[in-house]
Nucleic acid binder design. Structure first.
Length: 587
RNA sequence: GAUCCCGUAGCUCAACUGGAUAGAGCACUCGCCUUCUAAGCGAGCGGUUGCAGGUUCAAGUCCUGCCGGGAUCGCCA
């Protein structure tokens, strides 16, 4: 299953090679001048620069070769040495037909499947999921779907923040409010009560309090550090209380995950690295990788080539407690022994870039994992219209739960307004509204380039027109409707032949899926998938408006258009699946 | 202070490894529902890519300086 661009690249590459030049110069891609060409190649100019010859001459040689290809309807040299190619209608029709028959609708597979771990570090115990957490969850989910689709063996780990200072802060905050709890007894050894002494609501209230006090009050901070150290050292009552924090939080997070349609293979946390910490510390100390400095054990990771300051990795602080540097290293050891991944991806806020740089270097120095097998996939933050971290009108953070609820309400209102709800059962109505809402949210977020900050605009997130998730669903639903009708009327699909401009555009869009998937996979960029989905839906909408499909009288042509529709539907559902969007049957 | 990222149409965002006339959506102005879902389609309007230099046949993209915004910089994660 080779896409047109690759086939053309091979032909052009061979022509370059025949001239004694690098075959890679023959790379062709969709032209950004659709008025002039379907595909273009710029290699002649680069080649001429290196060889100090005339680029148009080289280009002409390649063009002569391209013209022999059955794919090519026309090929010519333009401007300083651009090579412009138009593919034949026959080639486009065959390619579209092949996509129609292909289970993967033209998508490539990984050449060598790998074991891949995806770490979604970002959620914390006791903190509710707010819209700031949307990105790691949605981006990570899209990537795990994409990597699996490519054939990799993916293990996703939610990797909760459950082991740091915030645990000591919470313990002390609970102690302030409920000092009578037996968990604080030094000799606590009681059974772990089935009813937690705190609820998620309590935790959500206590956490900001605790954090604020710890920040402003040095004495309190010392107590929090001490409690954290004791928790990590195994103090029984603290462990029991901590376990409650984790359990209560997890129930809430799983609910949000279900609402978002996101799945994790493992619900591990920083604390799961605990058993590896002693040997990790010993190992690094004994090999002289960790050194004592100002009472703390650190790993110096500076390199000569560094231009920026590289603070050392803090392995054990002067109170004997470990932070997330150590737990991340411990987790690397854990994964090495249990999964032995060839690649680990950390889908975590861009602001953690330095942290991961430190951890990766240390892991490499210690021989736990080569730096090349560890990748931090940072993402930008969501800002408000003022460019600062997003706040609600009341000044608080918008909870993910509330965002989803608002989107569902908006979707329900839109469905009712369009009169869709009348013939549907309440269940189906709710299901459709939910799918529309999720599509709106996910697409609005994922269509931004992963690495940059962007402005969160609620209206845009739940809007249903233009370049939005619901637009894509609408296109898919039209295709499904046609499919149902075709089945009912007994119309069969046939070989695709490309006649109209709209059909040509749609066939070219379908062909681009191969490169889309390859690019999104290589760069770990879901927005590339979004762009393709939109371009495909747009091309289909144009086709739908321009050409009768089942209403077409000519039987062969009708069969071709139905096949084109089915191919598009399959590919659109595939790509939507990769960004975590489900399509309803009607809307 | 040091380092890194960002600055593209009124607004929100694209632009693959440097390629041709910088593309979408929203908003605004027109036109299109007696045939397959108008959450749609077609057309128009809208740009000195923050500023000034430089490299190149070619710069939104690379280099230098400046302006504006953000992030990070060992005991919080």
């Amino acid at each position: 299953m080779i896409d047109l661009a690759s086939q053309l690249s091979q032909t052009a590459g061979a022509a370059f090679a025949a001239l004694g030049l690098d075959a890679g110069l023959g790379a062709m891609w969709r032209s950004d001048r659709p008025d002039l060409a379907d595909f273009q190649c710029n290699g002649a100019m680069a080649a001429a620069k290196a060889a100090k010859t005339n680029p148009r001459e080289i280009a002409q040689g390649v063009v002569d070769e391209l013209r022999r290809s059955l794919l090519v309807a026309s090929a010519e040299v333009a401007g300083p040495g651009f090579i412009n190619v138009r593919v034949s209608a026959e080639a486009l029709g065959e390619r579209a037909t092949a996509i129609f028959r292909d289970e993967r609708a033209g998508a490539p597979s990984a050449e060598i499947p790998r074991r891949v771990v995806m770490d979604f570090g970002g959620w914390n115990v006791a903190k509710p999921m707010h819209i700031g957490h949307l990105r790691s969850t949605i981006i990570g989910d899209s990537l795990q779907r994409l990597f699996r689709f490519m054939g990799d063996e993916v293990t996703s780990d939610v990797h909760l923040g459950d082991w740091g200072l915030q645990m000591g802060q919470l313990i002390n905050e609970v102690r302030l409010e409920q000092p009578e709890l037996s968990y604080f007894d030094a000799d606590f050894s009681g059974p772990y009560p089935s009813v937690p002494p705190i609820t998620m609501e309590t935790l959500e209230r206590l956490y900001p309090q605790a954090s604020a006090r710890s920040k402003t009050d040095a004495d309190r901070r010392d107590l929090d550090r001490k409690a954290t150290g004791e928790l990590q050292a195994g103090r029984s009552g603290y462990r029991a209380l901590w376990r409650h924090f984790c359990d209560v939080t997890r129930v809430g997070l799983e609910r949000e995950c279900a609402a978002l349609g996101v799945h994790f293979d493992m619900w591990k946390g920083e604390s799961d690295a605990e058993s590896y910490i002693p040997e990790l510390v010993d190992d690094l100390k004994s090999r002289g990788i960790a050194v004592l400095d100002e009472g703390a054990w650190i790993v110096r990771i500076v390199r000569e080539a560094d231009r920026k300051e590289m603070p050392p990795l803090l392995l054990v602080n002067r109170d004997g407690a470990v932070g997330y540097h150590a737990t991340d290293l411990g987790t690397i050891i854990d994964r090495k022994r249990t999964i032995d991944p060839e690649l680990t991806l950390y889908i975590v806020d861009q602001r953690q870039a330095l942290h991961f740089e430190q951890v990766f270097r240390a892991a490499d120095m210690a021989g736990y994992a080569p730096e090349s097998a560890l990748e931090h996939l940072g993402f930008g933050t969501m800002n408000g219209k003022d460019g600062k971290p997003f706040k609600t009108r009341e000044g608080g953070v918008l909870k993910l739960h509330d965002l989803i609820a608002q989107a569902r309400d908006a979707a329900s209102a839109r469905l009712t307004e369009a009169g869709i709800g009348e013939g549907l059962s309440p269940e189906e109505f709710t299901d459709i509204a939910s799918k529309v809402a999720l599509a709106a949210i996910k697409f609005a977020d994922l269509s931004n380039v992963r690495t940059t900050n962007y402005i969160f605009d609620l209206d845009r997130f739940i809007s249903f027109e233009g370049k939005t998730g619901p637009y894509l669903l609408y296109a898919a639903v039209r295709m499904k409707s046609l499919t149902r009708r075709a089945r009912a009327e007994g119309v069969e699909p046939g070989a695709i032949s490309v006649e109209l401009d709209a059909e040509r555009g749609l066939a070219l869009a379908l062909d681009g899926f191969t490169e889309t998937v390859r690019g999104a996979y290589a760069r770990r960029m879901p927005h590339i998938l979004c762009d393709h989905a939109f371009a495909l839906a747009q091309a289909f909408s144009g086709f739908y408006a321009a050409a009768p499909i089942l209403a077409e009288k000519d039987v062969t042509r009708r069969a071709s258009r139905l096949a084109l529709t089915l191919a598009t539907m399959k590919q659109l559902e595939l790509v939507l699946g990769l960004i975590g969007i489900e399509t309803p049957e009607r809307m």
